[in-house]
Nucleic acid binder design. Structure first.
Length: 359
DNA sequence: TAGGCCATCTGGTCCT
DNA sequence: AGGACCAGATGGCCTA
């Protein structure tokens, strides 16, 4: 069973790791090309930057002028000091010739270009991370900080699955993922996971939403929690829309596919090729809700996880009352997980992680 | 309009 | 000396 578990979950972990590796390699330039961001500054961009940094350039030049003025002043001071006052100590200020000024500006431009490239690489890495995190949308990107938080929670959740060797209930899983996230992101992720379930329902009662779920180590059980959507007349438990006991997965972590056992529609333009987060968000949440259908929008905003935001009892959940924050508070303020309890330079032992996870 | 997010510039520090 | 990394400052864009 454990071997199957590893075979199901490890690809996700490896994909996560690969994402980090790929970030620093070939995908960077590719991503930039896709985003029309050249890896190296072209003349146009340089010109653009020169135009944009006109003010700062002017300041720099003014600084240079100041230097020259200072030199003049120093010379004047020197002449003035030549009489009574002692000369200034320390390294003598080198004369800022026009050539030196030009070299200095050139150095600064090169440094700026490098810094831009560095930040672009960093952003490409973040984009890759967004793709492997359990809530990805081309149109509604998670912010940088939320991406990092969610990634941390996701890694944590995967580690817990490996450690426990059993499928987490969806509430626990969502709570884990949403730990320390802002309320909007929490709703987004929660909605993401719940739409996963909803999709199977709407396949029976289509509302126009397209949703594709790549293979996932997590199955979302329709009875794990209640929401207006699941309690709606459309919801038909046992209708066969969910096949959580597929013969090929047994008691392990089943891939959740649309009814009929068909594989996900990888030809979808929204599907990101090899990147297959456990739950893939599609048009239903895209476009900052602008592209969403009305039903999606209502559903999305009306849905608040009972386990997260209501008085639902939290005992027995991985995170107790102190753990399930109502949102808005960030992990920096209230450190989640081992941040609050374990202070290891390296990854904490699984025993400690697990102990905390079940506290 | 305030606040969040982001890109960019910039100067400082550390390392090679 | 030059590059990498970092953090502060600044201004633009977007949304509630």
């Amino acid at each position: 069973m454990l071997s199957r578990l590893f075979s199901e979950v490890l690809p996700d972990v490896q994909r996560l790791a690969a994402g980090w590796v790929d970030d620093s390699e070939s995908e960077d330039c590719k991503a930039k090309e896709d985003d029309h961001e050249p890896c190296h500054l072209g003349e146009d961009e340089l010109d653009d930057n020169e135009a944009r940094e006109g003010s700062s350039r002017a300041e720099s030049e003014m600084a240079g002028d100041d230097d020259e003025d200072e030199e003049g002043e120093e010379e004047e001071c020197g002449e003035e000091n030549g009489g009574d006052k002692p000369k200034k100590r320390g390294p003598k200020k080198r004369q800022m010739t026009a050539a030196r000024l030009e070299r200095s500006k050139l150095r600064r431009q090169k440094a700026n270009a490098r810094e831009r490239t560095r930040m672009h690489d960093l952003n490409s890495a973040l984009d890759n991370l967004r793709k492997v995190v359990p809530c990805y949308s081309k149109t509604q990107k998670l912010s940088k900080i939320e991406t990092l938080r969610l990634a941390k929670n996701y890694i944590w959740a995967l580690g817990e699955i490996l450690r426990n060797g059993k499928r987490p209930d969806v509430v626990s899983y969502v709570q884990t993922l949403c730990k320390g996230l802002s309320q909007p992101t929490t709703n987004l992720v929660a909605g993401c996971l719940q739409l996963n379930t909803r999709n199977f329902l709407t396949e029976q009662c289509p509302d126009g939403a397209r949703f594709h779920v790549p293979s996932s180590p997590f199955s979302v059980h329709p009875y794990s929690y209640q929401c207006s959507r699941l309690a709606s007349p459309h919801y038909q438990p046992g209708s066969g829309a969910l096949n959580l006991r597929g013969p090929s997965y047994g008691s392990g972590y089943e891939a959740v596919y649309p009814p009929g056992g068909t594989s996900p529609d990888y030809s979808s333009p929204d599907y990101e090729g090899q990147h297959s987060p456990p739950v893939c968000l599609n048009g239903g949440l895209s476009g900052r809700q602008q592209e969403s259908s009305e039903t999606d929008r209502n559903y999305h905003y009306s849905m608040h996880y009972s386990g997260l935001t209501t008085s639902r009892p939290t005992h027995g959940l991985p995170f107790g009352p102190s753990g399930a924050r109502s949102g808005g508070a960030h992990s920096e303020n209230v450190p989640p997980f081992h941040d609050a309890h374990l202070h290891h330079d390296r990854a904490p032992p699984y025993e400690d992680l697990n102990a905390f996870f079940h506290n």
